[in-house]
Structures are given as structure tokens and as C-alpha cells.
Amino acid sequence: MRNAKLLWGIIVILTAACLVLTRVAMTETRAPGRDSAASKGEESRVVARIGDKTITSEMVRQKVYSKYGMEMLNQMLDHLAIQLEADDRGLRVEEKEIASELTRMQQGYGSEEEFYQSMKEQVGMTREELHEDVYFKLLVEKAATADIVVGENEISDYIKQHPEEFANTEQFHLQYILNETLEQANRTYELARSGNDFSTLAKERSLDVNTASEGGDLGWIEENDPFVSPGILKAAKDMEIGAVSQPVQTDGGYAIVKLIERKEDKKGDPEAIRETVRKQLALQKAPPIKDFTEQLRDKWKATLVDTDQEFGTPGTAAASSAPSGGQ
């Protein structure tokens, strides 16, 4: 689902920026005992030229640090504060928990590989960086809710009041062709049913410029997707794999739909559902993650030292940024 992909891209783009900055910092940091002449040579290394002007690695570093250095430093302090608190309380995040969260994040993508490729292309985050981001997200949530009690009755009541959240749903992989008139759509339907390649027809006849070049591919769509015409969703639910629908009226015209694949999105077994609700209700009772992380920084006495020289900012404690993937 394209909207799910877009929303996730927005969520992680700031995290990606900080991760890139961390790599820059590590690359540019001088090793102990490094020869000063070699250091100066590295700092003056030319990385770009235009006309008679040059840009050195040190110029880039200073620009990046002065603009984003404090954000990166704050994120590093947040992560250290979270880890200190978790170690003190004996809290851990298991690999299976990280894997489960990553699987949840992949909803709306055709496959695991498509998800990771999209994250790499859109926000520059690798598998390892996403893994780290999810680790700290889960760890700070555990720390924030460690002292919060959620009763079994609260969990049961929530599940009863929100049955739609826990019902299994279907997802459809669809192609479609959008025509302006019913006559045009009927003609498209006849051509598709007579053996013409659906992707080619979409490129030649579809009004939807966003999908026509991709053969009308809509990707994976949930059965209750609010951004897709109800008529298209109903047609998909009633179709067999490989079938082509008769014209379906939408707000933008008349659509011909082809069902490529379908799958069921299972919400988990009853025990897993109750644990999910327990965590959700605990987080609702907990302070906002941003505020909680600031409290941890105060508790563990985080201090910014001499940041004016490195980042061009006053050497006093700055407001903590929210941890990656937090509330």
C-alpha cells in the first residue's frame, strides 16, 4: 500500500539522517596517536572541484556538524541513557522481538526484500541501521512501562470494545486500468478477456498516470484500505486469482481490475494479541517517550561539554531529542 510506505518513510527519515551523521563522525574522528601531519592532510583532502574552487573533507565535516551535530549528539546521549537504564533494571530486547517488529513494519510491502530495498532507496537505511533503530525503540518502551501494571480485565475489555483491530484481514495484489467512460471500460474488458496482456493494456489505455507505466500495478492493498475505491475492494474480494473484473465505477471513472495474488493477514494467536494489548495500554499510561528519555538523561547526569567549539553552540545541556522510533 503506497500510503503505508509513505508514512513509514516519514517516520524513519530523521533517524536515517542521524545515522548518516554518526558514520560521518566516526570517519572523521582522529585515532589516538595519529600523526598530526597526516591528520591535516586528511582534513585538506579535496572531495570536489568546480571551476577554480575546491571543497575539502574538512569543509564538508564542518558544514554537517554545525547544522546537524547537536541532533546527532542528542540521539547518542538518548541511546546511552536508555541503555544505562535498561542495564540497571535488567531489561533486554530479544532478537525475536526485533524480528516481530520488523515484520509488522513490512505490512503494505510485497515482500521483505521490497521493504528493505525501499528503506535503502528512500531514506538510506540499511538492514543493520533499521535493526538498531528498532532495538532502541523497543528498549525504551520496556523501560518506560517497567513499573506500570495493566490488569487482565483491562485487556479483555479493550479486546471486546475493539474487535475490528484483531480480526484477520485479507490483502490483495492488484492491477487496474482506469477509463473515463463506461464504453471505454467495456472495450478494455473485452480486450483483456480476449487474451491481450493486461500490463500492456494498462500502459496504452489507463488514465492513471501514476500506475500506467507500471502496468497498472497497485501493489498489495488491504481489504479495508480507505484510500482505495470500495467498488475495487469488493470486486477483488469476490474474484479468483488471475481473473479480470467487469467495469467498476469509481470517483475517477471506470476501472477494470485484475487480481494477481491474495493473502490473509493474521493478527496472531490469543496470547500474542493479549500481550500486544498489554503493551499498548501500558504505553498509554506511561509518560510520552520523549519526556521519559529526558528524565533518563537527568537521572544519568548527561552533560554537554565544550559543544560551542565543535558545533558552534553554547556548551549547555540542550533539550533531548526523542529516541529513534519513539512516540
Score class of each variant (00 low, 15 high):
residue 137 K to D: 15
residue 159 I to L: 11
residue 146 A to E: 14
residue 167 A to G: 11
residue 140 V to H: 00
residue 173 H to M: 13
residue 189 Y to E: 10
residue 159 I to W: 06
residue 157 D to R: 08
residue 177 I to T: 00
residue 170 E to A: 12
residue 139 L to A: 03
residue 197 D to L: 04
residue 151 G to A: 14
residue 166 F to K: 06
residue 144 A to R: 04
residue 188 T to S: 11
residue 133 D to Y: 12
residue 177 I to Y: 01
residue 162 H to P: 09
residue 150 V to W: 07
residue 137 K to T: 15
residue 161 Q to W: 10
residue 196 N to V: 00
residue 170 E to T: 10
residue 172 F to L: 09
residue 146 A to T: 14
residue 186 N to T: 13
residue 172 F to S: 03
residue 205 R to M: 07
residue 197 D to W: 01
residue 190 E to Q: 10
residue 180 E to Q: 09
residue 205 R to S: 02
residue 196 N to R: 07
residue 163 P to T: 11
residue 208 D to N: 09
residue 171 Q to S: 15
residue 149 V to I: 14
residue 138 L to Y: 04
residue 143 A to Y: 02
residue 193 R to I: 11
residue 138 L to V: 08
residue 198 F to H: 01
residue 163 P to V: 11
residue 168 N to W: 12
residue 205 R to Y: 05
residue 192 A to C: 05
residue 146 A to Y: 11
residue 135 Y to C: 01
residue 161 Q to M: 14
residue 183 E to I: 15
residue 185 A to Q: 02
residue 177 I to W: 00
residue 152 E to Y: 03
residue 170 E to V: 09
residue 196 N to T: 02
residue 188 T to C: 10
residue 146 A to V: 14
residue 180 E to M: 07
residue 187 R to N: 09
residue 174 L to F: 09
residue 154 E to P: 10
residue 153 N to R: 14
residue 194 S to Y: 02
residue 156 S to L: 14
residue 165 E to I: 11
residue 183 E to R: 07
residue 149 V to P: 04
residue 207 L to H: 05
residue 177 I to G: 00
residue 147 D to P: 02
residue 148 I to G: 06
residue 147 D to C: 10
residue 185 A to R: 02
residue 196 N to W: 01
residue 203 K to V: 01
residue 194 S to P: 05
residue 164 E to G: 07
residue 172 F to N: 03
residue 158 Y to E: 09
residue 180 E to F: 07
residue 205 R to C: 03
residue 209 V to E: 13
residue 157 D to I: 06
residue 156 S to D: 15
residue 209 V to A: 09
residue 184 Q to Y: 09
residue 141 E to L: 08
residue 158 Y to C: 04
residue 194 S to V: 01
residue 151 G to V: 12
residue 202 A to P: 02
residue 145 T to E: 06
residue 135 Y to M: 03
residue 171 Q to Y: 13
residue 149 V to D: 12
residue 135 Y to I: 03
residue 182 L to W: 12
residue 188 T to A: 11
residue 204 E to M: 00
residue 182 L to I: 14
residue 159 I to Y: 08
residue 176 Y to M: 15
residue 188 T to N: 08
residue 197 D to K: 04
residue 162 H to G: 09
residue 138 L to W: 03
residue 189 Y to A: 10
residue 150 V to S: 06
